[in-house]
Design a binder for these strands. Sequence first.
DNA 1: ACAATAGAATGGTCTGACCATTAGATGCGC
DNA 2: GCGCATCTAATGGTCAGACCATTCTATTGT
Lengths: 234, 234
Amino acid sequence: MDQASISFDTVRSARLFEEICDQIKGQLSQGKIRPGDKLPPERDLAGQFGVSRSAVREALRALEVSGLIELRKGAKGGAFLLEESAPLTQSMEDMIDLGRVSMRDFTEARILITEVVVRLACERGKKKDFNAIERDIERLEAAVEKGDGRSDATYVTNFYDLLAAATGNQMLRFLTHGIAQLLAGLISARRPAPMHDLGERRRAILMCLRARDADKAGKLLTEHLMRVHARMEK
Amino acid sequence: MDQASISFDTVRSARLFEEICDQIKGQLSQGKIRPGDKLPPERDLAGQFGVSRSAVREALRALEVSGLIELRKGAKGGAFLLEESAPLTQSMEDMIDLGRVSMRDFTEARILITEVVVRLACERGKKKDFNAIERDIERLEAAVEKGDGRSDATYVTNFYDLLAAATGNQMLRFLTHGIAQLLAGLISARRPAPMHDLGERRRAILMCLRARDADKAGKLLTEHLMRVHARMEK
DNA sequence: ACAATAGAATGGTCTGACCATTAGATGCGC
DNA sequence: GCGCATCTAATGGTCAGACCATTCTATTGT
């Protein structure tokens, strides 16, 4: 047989905690454990795996950093499987924090991707999706009325999550969520002046979605995002 | 003062290893330590931070999982700051492995994003960028001639990395790299039949880039990626 | 009833030890 | 001298057992 055609998997890396991670991920992907569930306490896990508590801890730490579990202390605490964890957020934050990606590049990528998302949402969105967006806008406007429109990164990100949801593509949802999360962090840090016509603008986009006018929706959105960017730079 | 306008930062989480992570990230973002550097041994770090080795280990584990450092054992081993780490790859792999994103959605997102990238590369790419792509295609074809064209995920991903580089947007580079990495993993796992006209197709796209014909470049690329997808599904 | 307190569960940290792997130094045979 | 085997030190990986801090629950006292 041709020598070159033989291939090996990279050898199991000889690190216990990785093996433990993989087993837990395995259980998760097979549905034997599910989001929301609680893993056994560290001491029990150590017993079940036949390793020390340290090895288990390193594995749990790795899973936590990967965004798969959350660790709570105290009685009734433990390692809880996260729901729809948005795994990309942390990595993106790192990229910005460490200066590996400039704000400018981030914004540009955001605009490009969001435009793709809105176009796809335009093609595929169902009435249900659009109604959800409308309700979100109403909540936003009600909140702005009451004056508590600044503290809530939630209102900022929710819109984009719903937009991505309308595409029906889970990968785009994660991506969009990560980007929106990151942006929300920046907003709450910089506290730019509130945008009075936010609801109005979003409504305009929603109308395009319902009219299936992808070009106009994309254009409105891009324009809006550029204005947001301009505000952030001041 | 309006009660609602007061805000607190989330309280410093009382976990030592996070503090350590943050300090190391801080040094990194201030350029006091740089990619390629080696951090002091765990035992020394423990001394410097005034904590136990366990706390340091958890911090290093977290940084490793985040894709910021690499741990090598043995003499001359240690924690090395990674270069242009592609932090998103691991998270994306998890999404697929855990079944949170279907292959279909992933491919669709890949196609959409790559099309955006190729269009932008078309607008902005310099001669230098296109020449680099051309050399890469030549290397690919040479490798295929010699018959070692199957084992190397490198040749698969390199093209897309170079494409993304031509956009000049670092965020898109990371994103594209993550996607390509993940795909490379899938390819080397499934070993589909080699694509004999890969070089030819890439050359066609390159021609469009040089001619600044974004529409055609996007079209060719999308078509190509769909064929790749079809092959993977078999 | 209600509040204060005690207790148990559980993650976070510490100490100190030993193991496994790696790079380099040492030494032996030729 | 050269080359190969061996030894040594450095360093991450793991272990064992302890204690601390936090959080929930149950009991107790008023």
